[in-house]
Amino acid sequence: MLLEVENLQTEFKVKRGTVKAVNNVSFGVEKGEILAIVGESGSGKSVSSLSIMGLIRNPGKVTGGKIMFHDENLVGKSNKEMNKIRGDKISMIFQEPMTSLNPVYKIGDQIMESILTHTELSKTEAKETAIKMLDLVGIPSPEKRMDDYPHQMSGGMRQRVMIAMALSCNPEVLIADEPTTALDVTIQAQILELIDRLRNKIGMAVLLITHDLGVVAETADRVVVMYCGRIVEQADVKDIFTDPLHPYTKGLLESIPRMEEDRDRLYMIKGVVPDPTKLPKGCSFADRCENCMEKCKEHMPALVDVGGRKVRCFLYSDEEEVDV
């Protein structure tokens, strides 16, 4: 594994109590692989990625676990040490292309900044690299576009600039947090194709964070499904979509209106996501689950191996989570 997260715990101390946004989460990405993390809002998928980048700020804190990258634990590294890795070996694309670029700097300068920080290149060489990157992500006449400010570009273009910036130092891992959520479908198709092409070309590992199951089905190799801060299912993309095990994954897939078929009624997962400060005692999904048993309300099932994939549900194993 190129990047391996082991038993990660990230907590936020708020007035009403402690929110365990990421609770004992483990996963890994290999070179050239796209791993998707899916879940609804509040499931902890974004916090997991921010934890890897060391971008968790007060009142949040990584309280346990390891993040292993090249046999080095990233948890507990100082900001200065992380700065050497961030944007160089591991980079990130954020959800909002509108707000993650600095509005008062030219986009060329913003791309060059990360190149100059992380490499020994001279200014002219950095400029050449930046132009090359803009060209790579499909921005027409990149030399001219170097002098544009973010507001002169459309949303899709800005997202591509973000990707160019993230890729400018040839990262080994790219974390893409909802890279296409703010974009239109035709632009989304372009960006996803670009990420896939670059993965094949430079063999980077991609951690794709999204709530859109369609995007996952089309791009990912493996999938992690999160609910209320925990992994509930982990499997190859084919298994998740053809044979989901966890009732939550099943429900999610059933509740999407499909293009291919006509249904009078959509399947509904009843109820709402529980308050993160007052999670139920047993399984977090128990209240909404159709297959809920007595045991589910009292005990948290463990994430167990079921034929090469993992699932957290008493339907498949009686094993309980040891430390809740």
Binding site: T186, Q188, A189, L192, G214, A217, T242, L253, R258
Partner: peptide
């Protein structure tokens, strides 16, 4: 045609 083809589908078969 382009719009319909651009929608990511959950049907991977």
């Amino acid at each position: 045609q382009a719009l319909l083809s651009a929608i990511p589908s959950v049907d991977i078969t």
